[in-house]
Design a protein around this nucleic acid. Structure first.
Length: 947
RNA sequence: GGGCGGGUAGCUCAGUGGCAGAGCGCUGGCCUUACAAGCCGGAUGUCGCAGGUUCAAUCCCUGUCCCGCCUACCA
């Protein structure tokens, strides 16, 4: 284990620079086993398992990946700090979609065509690219502080996964859930492969036309049908009418003649297919190229005539049109119909076009022999598990979507005619057509007449096995026993792969392991651009998270996402998608991984579309700088403080007011963070930490501690110095731990330099995570309430100063008045602090009566339930009458508005007798306080008139 | 066609049956020995529209208009 870190430790008095902090910790964490989970039987810590999803296929691949890595790593770190045996299972999907994406891009870049390259050469190249893609994705994980230990799995994963995939396939086949069948499937002529229903995107509102033409009826007459795909008429094997449609009764049982191929076609009646109100009421039936027609064909025993080759050209069944491309054929068929006088016109029609998710090409329904997985029995259990609450989906509105999908699921076409992926473990006999499914090539299939099925499996098939395949299944490994389906197992992913991945993992997990793979499923939003559009290459609005982390110019970025496009055009697309980024100049500065992580963490899961606003990252980047500088100050103030410290460890926590207050605020932040993380509300945890650190610790406590620790004023209690030091040390070290899961790098860097108890381990990542259980962090509502009043008084006095442009260096006489002696004495205890924050001339004075005021005194009134406090600021000679009257008016307006609202409420019929007693009482109290404040303010106005 | 979600400050978004919030932006004043990536102030809203329930609605209900997503075989 090395003690040296890769870069020299950055000096604290330099501004925070993520580039000099973040790279220092990857290897350190790895060496200390931060990412390791134990599968030893002797380890009795609660097990926590969180599988990392394979990268998805959408344009937001990169950002989505960063988002998931962030949330998953945050949760995992939190669990580890709490002493859980947390396993975050990373991995590069062996044959996954990321690979496909990379392979496709790479092939395009190198101008290769897989059809001419040859399979062996192709596969070799894929391996090469795969390693590269894995590396790229792993870098991304590293940057986000996720496990860098991906190399372990990179090369073994394929073999391990393959064994699991084969085992699963064979077992499913034995159970007769996996079967081979010839039926209509989705075929992408551009990719030359079959697709599952989920891989087809339906493009709505495409402009098309509905074309009508006539079939001549044998024996005279004609019947007019309509279609949006005229070329499919080459495969028509029937014309259907509704049995009860009087217009066609005479034609029942007759036949029509196909105009282009020698085929006589029956007119059939079918009440399911035909809606007599639509179009002409007669439908052409093409069983081989339309899902409805296929079903109709089955009902009527119609012939299925395939007219397409696999590449989308018309085959020999198309007669004179054979060899033409789909589009060409469409035009040619229309023209030919017109020439024969059979065309009956066309009209525009908006239709939904099925498109291939990968290539964007129009998908054709095609008759084909494929492997299918029977879904219903599998889906039933997955459905039940969520219904019974064995697995909880968060946010729960997704439950309905999940139910709907699984409730109406079709069998899954799992075979693909691609060259990468897990090859199907089946052997075909060339001569007999016999098919044998086995784990390994059976001896009897050794001959040359036997070949392995050339198809591979849908990548989502192997992904579905992920939760247990990555733990060693089918072997019964200790890791599998410990982590699979452990009570604390969560899944975090974006909702777009709920069907692709989550539902299928549920089904496979239940089927092969007998229990659910995870107990909670967190579905987070999809990252979109600033205007709300999905990230896609076409739109030129893709952002690579690494560019946010390391910084990049916009022209570099668009060159990556839109290679080859004119730069000016690409840039304008980009800036349109990110208006706030466009305002940032010519590029992103290096925000650092922590800032990106923190920003991604602050979006709540209920937010379905996460509009990435670079400005928000910038704001959070400022927060990191704040943490950096505050820690520097704290370290200076702490001086030679070190643990163990008798005052810090004294029972009962701090005694001084401000120390108790910050401890209480810290406790509140811990409680909020705990609650947030536990409920998958990482945003709440992040915001609680943010508000506490900046709003409480920096804005108030550090300011208060500064004078005490630098040169204690004479009136400070002798205990105050050591206690403030101890409290500061405690809160500083604690808040770093509090924020670590969300911002691992900066917190580690600072934590290493901060005094800490001997019980702490080598890295902050080992926790413990701060909780309310620590007695030094105890809520104290009374202290907090008093502090709030104190803060309000300070704000009022500062506002007066600011309103009158009092020079920051000038001090002013301050007098505080309250009718309540308790309030007065509480405030008196804060005299020194008030002097500090308001910059008063001497200590402020306190008085109970509203006696005479010196001329030139400005009065601001702080309403309070315990009687309002008058804040009198002496500004003789510094104030302009008009400005002061305007200020009072503004203050008055605010009060009057509130009084009016309360008055309306209190006088409205029913409120007093029907509303809960507390609410009514509170309203009264508030109103009285406001009225009192108003009276005082009126007096102040009279006074101001004399200015 | 069906389902789901969203419309809150100029922008990105929180939020609650009881006086509407944050960050950024805008604005006035400050280079106050942690921090100008900062500090202290300030302004800003018919909480999409119309009804209903309620003492009280931005929140619950109904309708409606936009926007988005998912899903479906209407030729």
């Amino acid at each position: 284990m090395t003690d040296s870190l890769p870069t020299p430790a950055p000096a604290l008095d330099q501004p925070y620079d993520p580039a000099r902090v973040e790279p220092r910790w990857y290897a350190f964490w790895e060496e200390h086993g931060v990412f390791q989970a134990s599968d030893a039987a002797s380890d009795t810590r609660p097990a926590y398992f969180l599988p990392m999803p394979p990268p998805n296929v959408t344009g937001s691949l990169h950002m989505g990946h960063a988002q998931r890595a962030t949330l998953e790593d945050t949760l995992t770190r939190w669990h580890r700090m709490r002493g859980f045996n947390a396993l975050w299972q990373p991995g590069i999907d062996h044959a996954g979609i990321a690979t496909q994406l990379v392979v496709e891009r790479q092939m395009a870049r190198e101008g290769l065509d897989r059809r001419t390259l040859g399979r062996d050469a192709f596969v070799e190249k894929v391996w090469l690219w795969k390693a590269e893609s894995g590396g790229r994705i792993a870098v991304q994980q590293r940057v986000l502080g996720a496990s860098p230990d991906w190399s372990r799995s990179k090369f073994t994963m394929d073999a391990d996964m393959n064994r699991a995939v084969v085992e699963a396939f064979v077992r499913l086949h034995e159970e007769e859930l996996m079967y081979r069948a010839t039926r209509l499937i989705n075929w992408c002529p551009e990719c030359m492969t079959s697709l599952s229903d989920l891989e087809v995107d339906n493009e709505e509102g495409a402009n098309g036309e509905i074309f009508e033409f006539a079939y001549p009826v044998e024996g005279g007459g004609e019947i007019v049908v309509a279609t949006t795909r005229p070329e499919t008429m080459l495969g028509d094997t029937a014309v259907a009418v509704h049995p009860d449609d009087p217009r066609y009764t005479a034609l029942h049982g007759k036949r029509v003649q196909h105009p282009f191929v020698p085929r006589s076609i029956p007119i059939i009646t079918d009440a399911i297919l035909v809606d007599p109100k639509f179009g002409t009421g007669a439908v052409k039936v093409t069983p081989a190229h339309d899902f409805n027609d296929f079903a109709t064909g089955k009902r009527h025993g119609l012939e299925e005539i395939n007219i397409l080759n696999l590449d989308g050209t018309i085959n020999a069944n198309g007669g004179p049109f054979a060899g033409k491309d789909r589009k060409e054929a469409r035009r040619a068929v229309k023209r030919a119909l017109e020439e024969r006088g059979l065309a009956r016109g066309s009209k525009p029609h908006s239709l939904t076009l099925p498109r291939c998710q990968r290539s964007g090409g129009v998908v054709e329904p095609m008759i084909s022999t494929q492997w299918f997985l029977k879904m219903q029995p599998l889906a039933e259990r997955a459905l039940q598990a969520v219904r019974d609450g064995e697995t909880v989906i968060v946010p729960d509105e997704w439950k309905k979507t999940y139910d709907h999908f699984l409730g109406s699921i079709q069998d899954w076409c799992v075979s693909r005619q691609l060259w990468w992926g897990h090859q199907i473990p089946a052997w075909h006999n060339r001569d007999t057509g016999e098919v044998v499914v086995a784990r390994e090539r059976p001896a009897r299939c050794a001959g040359e007449d036997w070949t392995q099925d050339p198809d591979v499996l849908d990548t989502w098939f192997s992904s579905a096995l992920w939760p247990f395949a990555t733990l060693g299944w089918p072997e019964q490994t200790p890791a599998l026993a410990k982590f699979y389906g452990a009570p604390q197992s969560d899944l975090e992913t974006a909702y777009d792969i709920l069907f692709f991945w989550v539902a299928r993992m549920m089904m496979m997990g239940l089927h092969f392991m007998g229990k659910v793979p995870f107990r909670r499923i967190l579905l987070s939003g999809l990252i979109v651009d600033e205007t709300g559009d999905k990230m896609s290459k076409v739109k030129g609005n893709v952002i690579d998270p690494l560019d946010l982390v390391y910084g990049a110019t916009f022209s570099e970025m668009v060159k990556k996402t839109l290679p080859g496009a004119p730069e000016a055009e690409a840039l304008s697309k980009f800036k349109k998608a990110y208006p706030s980024a466009a305002a940032m100049g010519s590029g992103f500065p290096a925000f650092g991984a922590d800032a990106v992580r923190f920003t991604l963490a602050t979006y709540p899961p209920s937010n379905k579309r996460i509009a990435l606003a670079p400005k928000r990252i910038e704001g959070n980047r400022h927060f990191l700088n704040k943490i950096w500088n505050a820690s520097r100050l704290a370290l200076e103030l702490l001086g030679d403080f070190s643990w163990p410290d008798p005052v810090a460890e004294r029972k009962g926590g701090p005694r001084g007011f401000y120390n108790r207050w910050i401890a209480s605020r810290f406790a509140a932040a811990c409680a909020a963070a705990e609650e947030g993380l536990d409920a998958f509300r990482i945003d709440e945890a992040a915001l609680a930490a943010y508000r506490f650190f900046w709003g409480d610790l920096c804005d108030w406590y550090l300011e208060l501690a500064k004078p005490v620790l630098r040169k204690p004023p004479p009136h400070v209690h002798p205990e105050a110095v050591p206690e403030t030091r101890a409290t500061l040390a405690y809160v500083l070290e604690g808040s770093l731990r509090l924020m670590h899961p969300i911002m691992p790098f900066i917190t580690e860097e600072l934590w290493q330099r901060v005094p800490k108890p001997a019980a702490r381990k080598a890295t902050i990542a080992f926790g413990p995570y701060p909780t309310l259980a620590d007695e030094r962090a105890a809520r104290d509502p009374e202290v907090e309430a008093e502090m709030e009043m104190f803060q309000a008084v300070i704000s009022a006095a500062r506002a007066v100063r600011a309103e009158h442009d009092v020079d920051n260096k000038a001090d002013v006489p301050l007098r505080l008045r309250s009718a309540d002696p308790a309030v007065l004495s509480a405030l008196r205890a804060h005299a020194a602090a008030i002097r500090l924050f308001v910059k008063t001339r001497g200590d402020p004075e306190f008085e109970s009566a509203s006696g005479a005021r010196e001329a030139g005194t400005i009065v601001s009134v702080v309403p309070s339930a315990r009687g309002s406090v008058e804040v009198l600021v002496g500004l003789r000679g510094l104030v302009e009458r008009e400005a002061e009257l305007a200020r009072i008016d503004r203050e008055m307006k605010k009060i009057e508005r509130d009084v009016a609202a309360l008055g309306k409420k209190l006088t409205s019929p029913g409120f007093v007798d029907r509303a809960p007693k507390e609410v009514v009482e509170e309203a009264h109290a508030q109103r009285n306080a406001l009225l009192e404040a108003k009276a005082r303010l009126e007096a102040a106005r009279e006074l101001a008139k004399e200015l």
